[in-house]
Design a protein around this nucleic acid. Structure first.
Ligand SMILES: [Zn+2]
Ligand SMILES: [Zn+2]
Ligand SMILES: [Zn+2]
Ligand SMILES: [Zn+2]
Lengths: 162, 162
DNA sequence: CTTGACATGTAATGCTATAACATATCAACA
DNA sequence: TGTTGATATGTTATAGCATTACATGTCAAG
């Protein structure tokens, strides 16, 4: 499976299929790597996958507690940390929030496109950005380990004339 | 004045001259734009300029209070907000912290190189990164307004063999 | 000297994240 | 099968980051 050239997040699409596919990918990835995708963790991923938005940890926590899990912050933070560590979710620093990874298991250098109007988030292909980043860091003698690339702006729907 | 191809942050350098120059540039910029670089604001910038590190708002606040300013969070946050809004400082989201802009007034798409070991921060030239970012956003129909590009890794000094 | 815009002082609160310790679950192994 | 160690979860408390709201002060234009 290859990465969509254009993320679906900003287009009308069958999100059931969209999220279902990602969830299946995530499950397969977890199995193949021997990760323990426990109930809280799986449920957390499902919650994140419900929309193409980023959710704060406390928002996730609220939802988890409605499903019978404990309502203490560490419950949400631990599940989210697990997902992020294992590439099943991303942290959107600009929003102090988290979003499901739409390409679990695939090598990708995500660029997050954050619509400031509707709050939706797309995960665009950032291979070239990553290359440019390396090129910018090298002359400084800096070796990159992880990057955060986030862009704030308007999605096509919100940019369209009212 | 043009932008240094290689940021000084990770090299030994005369930081007095380095920070003095930036402060002078900032002052000139403020004057030319009719910005009010009041005592708290100027002092805040000076504090940020003392090192190539990012400082949390409360750390800045601590310093400001030692200089006789009020010790309530808004004091620091307002000064920092002013500096960021006017391009005299940057917000480093990964660290929930702020750093002085090393190129005030110059068009630059900063890429922040954050050394995870010594905490120093360099502001590298991100023109190509910005281009790549635009290229990644365009197919999605997304129009970018602001970006955050941060890289975590090791500076040359910290990467060198112990 | 009044007025209005901007800046600062001050108190209170809200949101985000982690530390620390107790308990539970589960699989490997004797 | 019982023990053990690793991993995960429950629970309490606290730390760290950021904003709201309102009062007060400053200064220059009219
Ligand atoms: Zn979808
Ligand atoms: Zn939108
Ligand atoms: Zn310097
Ligand atoms: Zn370093």
């Amino acid at each position: 499976m290859t990465i969509d050239p254009v993320p679906l997040a900003f287009s009308e699409h069958d999100h059931e299929t969209c999220s279902g596919g990602v969830l299946a990918q995530a499950g397969a990835l977890a199995a193949s790597r021997g990760l323990r995708l426990t109930p809280v963790r799986r449920r957390t991923l499902e919650i994140l996958l419900e929309s193409h938005r980023a959710m704060g940890a406390y928002e996730v926590l609220e939802r988890l507690s409605a499903d019978g899990f404990a309502k203490q912050p560490p419950v949400a933070y631990r599940a989210l940390e697990f997902l992020v560590e294992n590439g099943l979710a991303h942290r959107i620093r600009r929003l102090n929030a988290f979003a499901a990874c739409m390409h679990p298991g695939e090598r990708h250098s995500p660029v997050f496109l954050i619509c400031k109007s509707c709050d939706h988030i797309a995960e665009a292909q950032g291979a070239h950005v990553a290359t440019a980043l390396e090129a910018a860091a090298t002359p400084a003698g800096f070796s990159i380990e992880r990057t955060n690339v986030e862009a704030l702006g308007l999605c096509p729907a919100c940019a369209a004339p009212a």
